[in-house]
């Protein structure tokens, strides 16, 4: 799910950036530093949308760098265990398939794909029901439920399932 939240960060600025454009420089550096990063607690920082407040700068002993506490609003993407969302299938193999929902990767193991869907290898590997009516392949859109998350220092990785009511393929690229 996407959220709009307020975060705080201490920004260090070199004295050469001081002057009329101090604020602009600070914000430009903030955007460069945090946009696109990921933390386990807040998820992926997608975009900074506004600055709430810039606190008083503190000169650091010995270096001349000044630290400013900056409060900023941003759009983050944070997946939760138990959340249901839509995703695009990126890769299919006999172990299961990978899907992407925005910046996050989700793996759905073949144990968590309904039992009536069989793996078919070939040029376009896919999972298909015995009557061929439902097919999961690359670029399919699926609705899945996140059942586990693993948090790295710089990435969040999810495990999902489509073995539940109202989950599964919502749009097959081959059939449209």
């Amino acid at each position: 799910m996407f959220f709009h939240i307020v975060l705080e960060r201490n920004m260090q600025l070199h004295p050469r950036h001081f002057g009329r454009h101090l604020r602009d420089n600070l914000i430009a550096k903030l955007m460069k530093d945090v946009e696109g990063t990921c933390s386990g607690r807040h998820g992926f920082v997608v975009a900074i949308t506004g600055i709430e407040n810039i606190g008083k700068g503190m000169i650091r002993d010995g270096t001349g760098f000044v630290t400013f506490p900056v409060k900023y609003q941003c759009v983050v993407f944070r997946p939760f265990k138990g959340e249901i969302l839509e995703a695009v299938v990126t890769m299919v193999n006999k172990m299961g398939f990978f899907a992407e929902a925005g910046p996050v990767q989700i793996f759905v193991s073949n144990h968590l794909i309904p039992d009536d869907m069989e793996f078919q290898s070939g040029d376009a590997p896919n999972y298909t029901t015995s009557d061929g009516s439902v097919k999961i392949q690359k670029d399919s859109e699926v609705r899945l439920k996140i059942i586990g998350t693993r948090v790295d220092a710089t990435e969040i990785f999810c495990i999902g399932t489509i073995k539940d009511d109202f989950l599964g393929v919502i749009n097959d690229p081959a059939s449209t």
Partner: peptide, 14 residues
Amino acid sequence: SQVFEKSLQYVKRF
């Protein structure tokens, strides 16, 4: 960033 690009593609699609 890549995160921005992927998010934009995703939300436009869904």
